[in-house]
């Protein structure tokens, strides 16, 4: 316990430093607002995103429809807003289980090593031998297209990356005096792993998680675009771009607006990740 408290004052000063960075502020603002949109899209979207209006098909932007209407007469603005719910959910659900599983497995094999670690090592080698998208698409093909299956696929492949990172960190931390001290004092393995090693080892994993959320949105919308992720009529940015792609010369706003939303949100997560990396980086 003492070790973690000892490092706190240092963090505080770095926190102050980080807070003053424009990148951090911008990133936090973007993600904050995106979360708001994701939680309460109904407050911001003027129309039902799935309501088909045969009489208002393919309209250009106007006061009534700021981003125009799509080829089924649905309000494009409302669809981009409602997509925040799905895309932000993607950022969380496609990564959080990988994070939990990866951290647990990584910590255990890093602590106990032995045969389990060797098997784990070969398994990791095998998984990272596949290009990420190839394996995810193959798993989605097995499970069938759709959001839930996409989360499962990304989790099945993605946890390995977290576990690898966590294992390396745990092994690094084991070299520290306090780990040895814990062993000497006869603490249970569980206590040493989860109360001593993990809190110290987890920071790079958290930083990676931030960037991974940005990647999850990109990956999810790619799959949506290919027809393997979110399914129409669900409003998701990749699906929206796919729907609007045929009209890039005549109604460019249909694909540009969801494109901007992807870039902005990705930017938000990346900036936050960078700021956190600075904030949490061990002294060296």
């Amino acid at each position: 316990m003492t070790e973690t408290t000892l490092s706190l004052p240092k963090s505080r000063s770095r926190l102050g430093l980080a807070l003053r960075r424009p990148g951090f502020l911008l990133g936090a603002a973007i993600i904050g607002f995106s979360t708001l949109l994701a939680l309460f899209p109904g407050l911001f979207a003027p129309y039902d995103p799935n309501f088909i209006d045969y009489t208002a098909v393919g309209q250009p932007p106007s006061a009534a429809h700021p981003f125009g209407t799509d080829m089924l007469g649905r309000d494009a603005f409302s669809r981009v807003i409602w997509a925040y719910r799905i895309n932000m959910q993607m950022a969380i659900l496609a990564t959080v289980f990988a994070l939990v599983i990866g951290v647990t497995v990584g910590a255990l094999v890093g602590y106990y090593r032995g045969v389990a670690d060797m098997i784990f090592g070969r398994f990791v080698d095998a998984i990272i031998t596949f290009p990420f998208l190839v394996l995810v698409i193959a798993v989605v093909a097995v499970l069938g297209p759709g959001l839930i299956n996409m989360y499962i696929a990304i989790t099945l492949v993605g946890w390995v990356y977290y576990a690898r990172l966590m294992r390396a960190e745990i092994i690094g931390q084991m070299g520290n005096d306090y780990a040895a001290a814990g062993l000497v004092m006869g603490y249970s393995d569980r206590r040493i792993i989860f109360r001593h090693l993990l809190p110290n080892a987890i920071t790079p994993v958290i930083v990676y998680w931030m960037t991974d959320m940005a990647l999850a949105i990109l990956l999810g919308s790619s799959l949506g675009y290919l027809g393997l992720g979110a399914q129409p009529p669900q409003a998701e940015w990749g699906v929206l771009i796919a729907e609007g792609r045929n009209f890039i010369t005549t109604a460019w706003w249909l694909s540009l607006m969801p494109g901007i939303a992807i870039v902005l949100t990705g930017l938000g997560f990346s900036l936050l990740g960078d700021a956190m990396a600075d904030l949490l980086r061990p002294r060296g």
């Binding site: 940005a214 675009y225 771009i241 694909s255 992807i262 902005l264 949100t265 930017l267 990346s270």
Partner: peptide, 12 residues
């Protein structure tokens, strides 16, 4: 910004 752009949109 380049890092946050979806490949399929840029390509298009």
């Amino acid at each position: 910004v380049g890092l946050s752009m979806p490949v399929f949109y840029i390509g298009l």
